[in-house]
Amino acid sequence: MVWLCLAWPVFALESLAPLPLSTNVDEAKRQLGERLFHDNKLSAQNNRSCASCHPLDHAAMDGLPRAEANDGTHSLRNTPSLFNVGFNFFYNWDGVVSTLEAHTEKVMLNPKVMNTSWSALLASLQADADYKKAFTQVYPTGLIKENIVDAMVNFERSLITPNSRFDQFLRGNQHALSDSEQQGYRLFTSLGCAACHQGINIGGNLFQKFGVFAQPKSLAKDPGRYSVTNNERDKGVYRVPSLRNVAVTAPYFHDGSAATLAEAVDTMAHDQLGRTLSEQERNLLLEFLTTLTGEYQGKPVVGGVVTSQ
Protein backbone atom coordinates (compact mmCIF):
# COMPACT_ATOMS: atom_id res chain seq x y z
CA MET A 1 0.00 0.00 0.00
CA VAL A 2 1.38 3.37 -1.00
CA TRP A 3 0.41 6.53 0.76
CA LEU A 4 0.71 9.42 -1.58
CA CYS A 5 1.11 12.60 0.31
CA LEU A 6 0.71 15.80 -1.59
CA ALA A 7 1.88 18.82 0.24
CA TRP A 8 -0.13 21.66 -1.25
CA PRO A 9 1.61 24.91 -0.66
CA VAL A 10 -0.58 27.00 1.57
CA PHE A 11 -1.40 30.01 -0.51
CA ALA A 12 -0.30 32.78 1.72
CA LEU A 13 -1.82 36.13 0.92
CA GLU A 14 0.72 37.69 -1.38
CA SER A 15 1.47 41.02 0.17
CA LEU A 16 3.80 42.10 -2.63
CA ALA A 17 2.64 42.74 -6.19
CA PRO A 18 4.53 43.25 -9.46
CA LEU A 19 4.68 46.60 -11.25
CA PRO A 20 2.74 46.86 -14.50
CA LEU A 21 4.92 46.52 -17.59
CA SER A 22 3.70 49.78 -19.10
CA THR A 23 1.72 52.85 -18.21
CA ASN A 24 -1.05 54.39 -20.23
CA VAL A 25 -0.04 58.02 -19.92
CA ASP A 26 -0.67 60.36 -22.82
CA GLU A 27 2.47 60.35 -24.96
CA ALA A 28 2.29 64.01 -26.05
CA LYS A 29 1.79 65.17 -22.46
CA ARG A 30 4.56 62.86 -21.28
CA GLN A 31 6.99 64.37 -23.79
CA LEU A 32 6.06 67.88 -22.76
CA GLY A 33 6.52 66.89 -19.12
CA GLU A 34 9.88 65.34 -19.90
CA ARG A 35 11.05 68.59 -21.44
CA LEU A 36 9.91 70.59 -18.41
CA PHE A 37 11.52 68.03 -16.11
CA HIS A 38 14.92 68.71 -17.62
CA ASP A 39 14.50 72.48 -17.94
CA ASN A 40 16.39 74.83 -15.62
CA LYS A 41 13.69 77.45 -16.21
CA LEU A 42 11.72 75.69 -13.50
CA SER A 43 13.99 77.08 -10.79
CA ALA A 44 14.15 80.72 -9.81
CA GLN A 45 17.87 81.08 -10.47
CA ASN A 46 17.71 78.97 -13.62
CA ASN A 47 20.35 76.78 -11.99
CA ARG A 48 18.53 73.48 -11.43
CA SER A 49 15.86 71.34 -12.96
CA CYS A 50 13.94 68.42 -11.53
CA ALA A 51 16.55 66.17 -13.13
CA SER A 52 19.32 67.85 -11.08
CA CYS A 53 18.22 65.91 -8.00
CA HIS A 54 16.38 63.14 -9.84
CA PRO A 55 18.75 62.21 -12.69
CA LEU A 56 17.09 59.39 -14.57
CA ASP A 57 20.42 57.73 -15.36
CA HIS A 58 21.26 57.68 -11.62
CA ALA A 59 18.21 55.87 -10.26
CA ALA A 60 16.27 59.16 -10.27
CA MET A 61 17.94 60.40 -7.08
CA ASP A 62 21.10 62.33 -6.24
CA GLY A 63 22.96 59.71 -4.19
CA LEU A 64 23.60 62.25 -1.43
CA PRO A 65 22.72 61.64 2.23
CA ARG A 66 20.65 64.79 2.20
CA ALA A 67 19.71 67.10 -0.61
CA GLU A 68 21.28 70.50 -0.79
CA ALA A 69 18.92 73.44 -0.58
CA ASN A 70 18.77 75.98 -3.37
CA ASP A 71 20.61 78.54 -1.26
CA GLY A 72 23.32 76.04 -0.29
CA THR A 73 22.91 76.79 3.41
CA HIS A 74 20.34 74.19 4.37
CA SER A 75 20.36 70.46 4.20
CA LEU A 76 17.04 68.92 3.40
CA ARG A 77 16.03 65.31 3.85
CA ASN A 78 17.32 62.46 1.72
CA THR A 79 16.14 62.65 -1.88
CA PRO A 80 13.93 59.66 -2.67
CA SER A 81 14.12 58.09 -6.10
CA LEU A 82 11.42 59.35 -8.39
CA PHE A 83 11.02 55.98 -10.05
CA ASN A 84 7.58 54.41 -9.55
CA VAL A 85 6.46 57.57 -7.79
CA GLY A 86 3.01 57.17 -9.36
CA PHE A 87 2.37 54.13 -7.17
CA ASN A 88 2.92 55.97 -3.90
CA PHE A 89 -0.07 57.20 -1.95
CA PHE A 90 1.75 59.84 0.06
CA TYR A 91 4.59 62.14 -0.90
CA ASN A 92 7.59 63.52 0.91
CA TRP A 93 9.02 61.74 3.93
CA ASP A 94 6.27 63.21 6.09
CA GLY A 95 3.38 62.57 3.68
CA VAL A 96 2.45 66.23 3.66
CA VAL A 97 0.54 65.83 0.39
CA SER A 98 -1.31 62.90 -1.07
CA THR A 99 -1.51 63.72 -4.76
CA LEU A 100 1.30 63.86 -7.27
CA GLU A 101 -0.11 67.12 -8.60
CA ALA A 102 0.06 68.82 -5.21
CA HIS A 103 3.50 67.39 -4.62
CA THR A 104 4.86 68.63 -7.96
CA GLU A 105 3.59 72.12 -7.31
CA LYS A 106 4.89 72.09 -3.75
CA VAL A 107 8.43 71.18 -4.81
CA MET A 108 8.45 73.86 -7.49
CA LEU A 109 7.30 76.59 -5.12
CA ASN A 110 9.43 75.44 -2.16
CA PRO A 111 11.99 78.24 -1.60
CA LYS A 112 14.59 75.66 -0.61
CA VAL A 113 14.11 73.51 -3.68
CA MET A 114 13.07 75.14 -6.95
CA ASN A 115 12.09 78.47 -5.39
CA THR A 116 10.01 79.58 -8.34
CA SER A 117 6.67 81.33 -8.42
CA TRP A 118 3.85 80.77 -10.85
CA SER A 119 4.00 84.29 -12.21
CA ALA A 120 7.75 84.04 -12.86
CA LEU A 121 7.54 80.54 -14.30
CA LEU A 122 4.60 81.35 -16.56
CA ALA A 123 6.34 84.49 -17.80
CA SER A 124 9.53 82.60 -18.55
CA LEU A 125 7.72 79.80 -20.36
CA GLN A 126 5.48 82.24 -22.25
CA ALA A 127 8.62 83.89 -23.57
CA ASP A 128 9.55 80.61 -25.23
CA ALA A 129 7.63 80.28 -28.49
CA ASP A 130 8.35 76.55 -28.62
CA TYR A 131 6.66 75.90 -25.28
CA LYS A 132 3.72 78.07 -26.21
CA LYS A 133 3.24 76.16 -29.43
CA ALA A 134 3.70 72.74 -27.82
CA PHE A 135 1.22 73.50 -25.03
CA THR A 136 -1.36 74.84 -27.45
CA GLN A 137 -1.05 71.65 -29.49
CA VAL A 138 -1.43 69.35 -26.50
CA TYR A 139 -3.87 71.29 -24.31
CA PRO A 140 -6.89 73.26 -25.57
CA THR A 141 -6.36 75.75 -22.74
CA GLY A 142 -2.71 76.25 -23.66
CA LEU A 143 0.11 77.29 -21.39
CA ILE A 144 -1.45 77.60 -17.95
CA LYS A 145 -0.51 76.49 -14.45
CA GLU A 146 -2.77 73.41 -14.36
CA ASN A 147 -1.45 72.15 -17.69
CA ILE A 148 2.19 72.59 -16.67
CA VAL A 149 1.53 70.48 -13.57
CA ASP A 150 -0.46 67.96 -15.60
CA ALA A 151 2.31 67.51 -18.18
CA MET A 152 4.87 66.97 -15.42
CA VAL A 153 2.63 64.55 -13.55
CA ASN A 154 2.11 62.60 -16.76
CA PHE A 155 5.85 62.33 -17.14
CA GLU A 156 6.31 61.37 -13.49
CA ARG A 157 3.70 58.63 -13.84
CA SER A 158 5.62 57.26 -16.80
CA LEU A 159 8.73 56.78 -14.64
CA ILE A 160 8.24 53.10 -13.91
CA THR A 161 10.90 50.42 -13.55
CA PRO A 162 9.13 47.16 -14.30
CA ASN A 163 10.50 43.73 -15.01
CA SER A 164 12.79 43.39 -12.02
CA ARG A 165 13.80 39.79 -11.40
CA PHE A 166 11.55 39.73 -8.38
CA ASP A 167 8.59 40.89 -10.49
CA GLN A 168 9.36 38.15 -13.00
CA PHE A 169 9.30 35.71 -10.08
CA LEU A 170 5.97 37.11 -8.88
CA ARG A 171 4.61 36.70 -12.40
CA GLY A 172 5.38 32.99 -12.16
CA ASN A 173 8.94 32.58 -13.42
CA GLN A 174 10.38 30.39 -10.64
CA HIS A 175 13.85 30.58 -12.19
CA ALA A 176 14.06 34.35 -12.05
CA LEU A 177 15.37 34.13 -8.48
CA SER A 178 18.18 31.92 -7.29
CA ASP A 179 17.61 29.62 -4.29
CA SER A 180 19.30 31.98 -1.88
CA GLU A 181 17.34 34.94 -3.25
CA GLN A 182 14.13 32.98 -2.72
CA GLN A 183 15.27 32.22 0.82
CA GLY A 184 15.90 35.92 1.23
CA TYR A 185 12.36 36.62 0.06
CA ARG A 186 10.93 34.15 2.58
CA LEU A 187 13.02 35.79 5.28
CA PHE A 188 11.76 39.20 4.14
CA THR A 189 8.20 38.14 4.84
CA SER A 190 8.82 35.97 7.91
CA LEU A 191 11.00 38.53 9.68
CA GLY A 192 8.20 41.06 9.29
CA CYS A 193 9.76 43.45 6.76
CA ALA A 194 6.70 42.85 4.59
CA ALA A 195 4.42 44.01 7.40
CA CYS A 196 5.17 47.54 6.26
CA HIS A 197 7.01 47.14 2.97
CA GLN A 198 4.12 45.68 1.01
CA GLY A 199 1.93 46.44 -1.96
CA ILE A 200 2.89 47.17 -5.51
CA ASN A 201 5.64 49.60 -4.50
CA ILE A 202 6.88 47.49 -1.56
CA GLY A 203 6.17 50.50 0.65
CA GLY A 204 4.88 54.00 0.07
CA ASN A 205 1.36 53.39 1.40
CA LEU A 206 1.85 53.57 5.15
CA PHE A 207 3.34 55.67 7.95
CA GLN A 208 5.45 54.16 10.68
CA LYS A 209 7.48 55.33 13.61
CA PHE A 210 11.22 55.23 12.91
CA GLY A 211 12.35 53.28 15.94
CA VAL A 212 9.62 50.96 17.26
CA PHE A 213 11.77 48.82 19.55
CA ALA A 214 14.85 51.00 19.87
CA GLN A 215 15.89 54.51 19.03
CA PRO A 216 17.81 54.70 15.72
CA LYS A 217 21.28 56.16 16.09
CA SER A 218 20.78 59.45 14.34
CA LEU A 219 17.59 61.28 14.89
CA ALA A 220 18.48 64.79 13.84
CA LYS A 221 16.02 67.40 15.00
CA ASP A 222 13.35 66.34 12.59
CA PRO A 223 9.77 66.21 13.85
CA GLY A 224 8.77 63.89 11.02
CA ARG A 225 5.05 63.68 10.37
CA TYR A 226 4.38 65.73 13.51
CA SER A 227 5.03 68.83 11.40
CA VAL A 228 2.00 67.85 9.29
CA THR A 229 -0.47 66.62 11.91
CA ASN A 230 0.71 68.31 15.14
CA ASN A 231 -0.18 65.05 16.84
CA GLU A 232 2.28 63.90 19.55
CA ARG A 233 2.17 60.31 18.32
CA ASP A 234 3.50 61.44 14.92
CA LYS A 235 6.86 62.57 16.31
CA GLY A 236 9.54 60.58 14.52
CA VAL A 237 6.95 59.04 12.18
CA TYR A 238 7.78 58.87 8.46
CA ARG A 239 6.35 57.43 5.33
CA VAL A 240 7.47 53.83 4.79
CA PRO A 241 9.60 54.23 1.65
CA SER A 242 9.33 52.03 -1.41
CA LEU A 243 12.02 49.35 -1.62
CA ARG A 244 11.95 49.22 -5.41
CA ASN A 245 15.49 49.73 -6.77
CA VAL A 246 16.66 49.89 -3.16
CA ALA A 247 20.06 48.32 -3.96
CA VAL A 248 20.99 51.26 -6.21
CA THR A 249 19.50 54.14 -4.21
CA ALA A 250 21.97 54.52 -1.31
CA PRO A 251 22.23 56.24 1.10
CA TYR A 252 19.16 55.36 3.15
CA PHE A 253 16.56 56.74 5.54
CA HIS A 254 15.08 60.24 5.67
CA ASP A 255 18.39 61.66 6.87
CA GLY A 256 20.68 59.49 4.75
CA SER A 257 22.18 58.10 7.96
CA ALA A 258 22.73 54.60 6.53
CA ALA A 259 25.41 54.69 3.87
CA THR A 260 25.03 51.08 2.80
CA LEU A 261 22.13 48.73 2.35
CA ALA A 262 23.62 46.30 4.90
CA GLU A 263 23.68 49.06 7.48
CA ALA A 264 20.08 49.98 6.67
CA VAL A 265 18.93 46.37 6.91
CA ASP A 266 20.60 45.99 10.32
CA THR A 267 19.01 49.19 11.63
CA MET A 268 15.61 48.15 10.35
CA ALA A 269 15.85 44.66 11.87
CA HIS A 270 17.03 45.95 15.22
CA ASP A 271 15.01 49.13 15.65
CA GLN A 272 11.85 48.27 13.76
CA LEU A 273 11.52 44.53 14.25
CA GLY A 274 13.29 44.05 17.57
CA ARG A 275 15.57 41.45 16.03
CA THR A 276 19.27 40.90 15.60
CA LEU A 277 20.15 39.37 12.24
CA SER A 278 22.74 36.68 11.80
CA GLU A 279 25.36 37.25 9.13
CA GLN A 280 23.64 34.68 6.94
CA GLU A 281 20.18 36.20 7.37
CA ARG A 282 21.46 39.64 6.47
CA ASN A 283 23.22 38.32 3.36
CA LEU A 284 20.12 36.49 2.22
CA LEU A 285 18.05 39.62 2.70
CA LEU A 286 20.60 41.69 0.77
CA GLU A 287 20.56 39.16 -2.02
CA PHE A 288 16.80 39.36 -2.20
CA LEU A 289 16.80 43.17 -2.13
CA THR A 290 19.05 43.34 -5.19
CA THR A 291 16.37 41.50 -7.17
CA LEU A 292 14.08 44.51 -6.72
CA THR A 293 16.11 46.53 -9.21
CA GLY A 294 13.99 47.08 -12.30
CA GLU A 295 14.45 48.50 -15.77
CA TYR A 296 13.81 52.01 -16.97
CA GLN A 297 13.07 52.08 -20.68
CA GLY A 298 14.46 48.57 -21.02
CA LYS A 299 17.77 49.30 -19.26
CA PRO A 300 18.55 48.20 -15.70
CA VAL A 301 18.46 51.02 -13.20
CA VAL A 302 21.91 52.04 -11.97
CA GLY A 303 22.70 54.33 -9.08
CA GLY A 304 25.63 56.27 -7.74
CA VAL A 305 26.48 59.70 -6.53
CA VAL A 306 25.89 62.41 -9.07
CA THR A 307 28.99 64.48 -9.63
CA SER A 308 28.00 68.09 -9.25
CA GLN A 309 27.96 70.17 -12.38
Binding site: E14, S15, L16, A17, F89, S98, Q198, G199, I200, N205
Partner: peptide, 12 residues
Protein backbone atom coordinates in the same frame (compact mmCIF):
# COMPACT_ATOMS: atom_id res chain seq x y z
CA UNK B 1 -5.83 41.97 3.74
CA UNK B 2 -2.83 41.08 1.52
CA UNK B 3 -1.47 44.63 1.52
CA UNK B 4 -2.52 48.20 2.20
CA UNK B 5 -2.66 49.32 -1.44
CA UNK B 6 -6.40 48.82 -1.79
CA UNK B 7 -7.11 50.50 1.53
CA UNK B 8 -4.82 53.42 0.68
CA UNK B 9 -6.41 53.74 -2.73
CA UNK B 10 -9.90 53.90 -1.24
CA UNK B 11 -8.71 56.42 1.34
CA UNK B 12 -7.20 58.47 -1.42
Amino acid sequence: LPNYDALSKTGH
